[in-house]
Design a protein around this nucleic acid. Structure first.
Length: 327
DNA sequence: AAAACGGGGAT
DNA sequence: ATCCCAGTTTT
């Protein structure tokens, strides 16, 4: 019995019951793979179900408004994925689904991993996908610190590449987990080099973590008879296309009645801390007023209409902190 | 090669 | 507080 057959047998018995596996079609598999980029299955599942209720087919997504797509995506993070998904849907609605790996790989938001995963599952192509789970499994299996794409393409079972890739992912997610791996339950234990050497937790090696800086923001709660002033972020970059309260980075302690890039704070309200990938945000929330040139970039809305605008989690927390005192 | 890009759950 | 998740794109 070779280890690939053993792995596939384990997969048939233990695979996770995931919605896009029950009835695989390109739209659902593609959507699932994009949603799962740097995102756990447990976090992604409710978004997947909600997304399909709102946009049941590729045509529905292609015809949708980008704001509606972002609204469903809020909380899932990496919003460039939603923008790429929407743009790609409009392209695919015209051209149809890619029929080979290069065709998939060209799509915006589809990289080496996603292209191989989708092409192996949907087209049965013998391509070895390498995600975080598979990287860890192979690193231990071969007791080597670096796992290359070439290795994965060599190891994939050409008879069942889709199941093979998904089997390794499930093994990594449920058995060969980062800390305290469940080696006694692992079907690959007889072949695992790190296990034979008693060095399982040495692989894969930890990467040094760059220090994360903190940025202090002045966030303004500006209310007039027209309502609360909010604005939409630029389409590209951090939280692209999402809505926010007027804010700016500050280098020094905030003083009332001072103009910070057109934001004039008057009364301090709250401190809200929020962690992003490459910096920690310290939101200093003040009630205050806006210079006319800033007000031009904003729109005033009623508090009850906040739900109609996709706010990032950070600003949702800011709003939650002040809405009881200011409404 | 390194940085940008979210958020949450487990330890 | 740290790790890390079915990674991709830009610099």
């Amino acid at each position: 019995m070779d280890w690939r057959q053993t792995l596939l047998a384990w997969y048939l018995a233990h695979r996770r019951d995931l919605p896009w596996r029950r009835d695989p079609d390109p739209y659902r598999v593609w959507l699932a793979e994009v949603m799962l980029q740097q995102t756990r299955v447990s976090q992604m599942l409710p978004y997947f179900e909600r997304f399909l209720v709102r946009f049941p087919t590729l045509a529905d997504l292609a015809q949708a408004d980008l704001n509606a797509v972002l609204q469903v995506w809020v909380g899932l993070g990496y919003y460039g994925r939603a923008r790429n998904l929407h743009r790609t849907a409009q392209q695919l609605a015209v051209e149809g689904w890619p029929q080979d790996y290069p065709g998939w790989r060209k799509l915006p938001g589809v990289g080496d991993y996603t292209g191989r995963a989708v092409a192996s599952v949907l087209l049965g192509l013998p391509l070895g996908a390498v995600d975080g789970n598979i990287r860890r499994v192979y690193s231990r299996f071969f007791a080597q610190p670096v796992v290359t794409q070439v290795l994965a393409d060599q190891q994939v079972d050409p008879k069942a590449p889709g199941d093979f890739n998904q089997a390794l992912m499930d093994l990594g997610a449920t058995v060969c987990i980062p800390r305290q791996p469940k080696c006694p339950a692992c079907p690959l234990q007889p072949w695992c080099q790190a296990y034979q050497q008693g060095r399982v937790t040495e692989f894969p090696p930890r990467k040094p973590k760059p220090p994360v800086p903190e940025r202090v923001f002045l966030v303004l709660v500006a209310q007039t008879e027209d309502g609360l002033w909010v604005r939409q972020r630029p389409a590209q970059g951090l939280l692209g296309g999402l809505w926010e309260l007027p804010n700016c980075v500050v280098q020094e302690p905030i003083q009332a009645k001072t103009d910070y890039e057109g934001l004039v704070p008057r009364v301090w309200q709250a401190t809200v801390k929020h962690q992003y990938t490459h910096f920690h945000a310290n939101f200093q929330v003040w009630q205050g007023t806006l210079a006319p040139r800033v007000q031009q970039q904003c729109s005033a809305i009623d508090w009850v209409d906040l739900d109609q605008h996709p706010f990032s989690k950070g600003f949702q927390r800011v709003l939650a902190a002040v809405r009881t005192k200011l409404t």
